[in-house]
């Protein structure tokens, strides 16, 4: 059977499915595929704002950048800036994801029982999710203001010296993590609450009959029961946090100095703050971030599969 025949036959059988899928493929191609290919291409050139093709009204300036192969990658990887930023980004991701997950898990367990005002608590805990992230972040920034913020006013009331929330490298790192945890908990909470409710109540009853205490029930029923949900949310959360541009950019702009600068905010700096904007180096950073995350995702899935996870 030739290729053309096979295609025709496949299409004949599955034409309906193909038609249904086509719009999505098209949209993903335009929105994700094209920029991705273009980004990889730019990372292999010396393109910047001053040499790409531009149309300014009726004037047309042709592109004059050239192909430079892997020069950009070599420059990035041999620069200590990349490794410094990578170190902090990993720390930031691990810190945020673990704290978010543990807080979310604790809250989900607390809310997974009948207690008075449960709906109210659930709504209150989802609130950070309902508020647009940038508004929350600006609010945090106002709270953190060393001279006029509420946090320091409260501390002053207790006789404690002002804390340089965003003005000291170490404090700033803790502050951005705290803000991101606050933003991330609702997602964990909702996902884990859903997971908890899918664990059959009989298991707990049986365990209780057998004399298992609360910790043993948690350890041997809740944790395994949540594995499918938690493995997914941890991976998602890790990817989001790794690239959590708004929290860092809006709270500290990567400062003080470069203390809180993660990989994506540095790529932004190259592409939007330097002048002329350095598209090619920024694209190289972007591709490296993608490669890193893909690697993590693959390794993570392998590890899960070894534990018998079908995912």
């Amino acid at each position: 059977m030739t290729f053309a025949v096979r295609v025709r036959r496949a299409f004949g059988t599955h034409w309906y499915a193909w038609t249904m899928v086509a719009p999505v493929v098209l949209v993903i191609g335009v929105i994700i595929g094209y920029p991705l290919v273009r980004g990889v291409f730019l990372s292999l050139t010396d393109a910047n704002e001053a040499n790409v093709e531009r149309h300014i009204g009726v004037n047309h300036l042709p592109a004059t950048y050239k192909f430079t192969g892997l020069d950009n990658y070599q420059a990035v990887l041999s620069d200590s800036v990349f490794w410094d930023r990578l170190g902090w980004t990993v720390l930031w991701t691990v810190g945020c994801v673990s704290l978010t997950f543990l807080t979310g898990l604790a809250l989900a367990n607390m809310l997974n029982r009948t207690l008075r005002g449960r709906t109210f608590y659930r709504l209150a805990l989802i609130l950070p999710w309902a508020v647009p992230a940038f508004i929350s972040i600006f609010t945090w920034r106002m709270l953190y203001n060393e001279k006029n913020g509420i946090l320091n006013k409260l501390l002053a009331g207790g006789g404690i010296d002002a804390v340089p929330w965003l003005n000291d490298p170490t404090w700033a790192k803790l502050s951005v993590i705290a803000c991101n945890v606050w933003l991330g908990v609702p997602f964990m909470l909702v996902a884990l609450l859903g997971g908890l409710q899918s664990i059959p109540g009989e298991l707990y009853e049986a365990a209780e009959m057998d004399g298992a205490n609360a910790w043993q029930r948690f350890r041997n029923i809740t944790v395994p029961g949540l594995r499918a949900v938690s493995s997914t949310v941890i991976l998602l959360s890790a990817i989001w946090t790794f690239n959590m541009f708004p929290v860092i950019f809006l709270l500290t702009r990567g400062g003080p100095g470069d203390a809180t600068e993660i990989l994506v905010t540095y790529a932004y700096r190259l592409s939007f703050i330097d002048s002329p904007r350095d598209f090619s180096a920024s694209a190289a950073w972007g591709v490296l971030i993608l490669v890193l995350l893909s690697l993590v995702a693959v390794v993570y899935r392998r590890a899960l599969r070894k534990q018998g996870e079908v995912w």
Partner: peptide, 20 residues
């Protein structure tokens, strides 16, 4: 490039002021 000369100063003055 005049305008991009500021960002490196910003990073370093932050570092100096925080003792980094």
């Amino acid at each position: 490039e005049g305008n991009s000369l500021f960002e490196p100063i910003k990073v370093q003055m932050n570092k100096v002021l925080t003792g980094a």
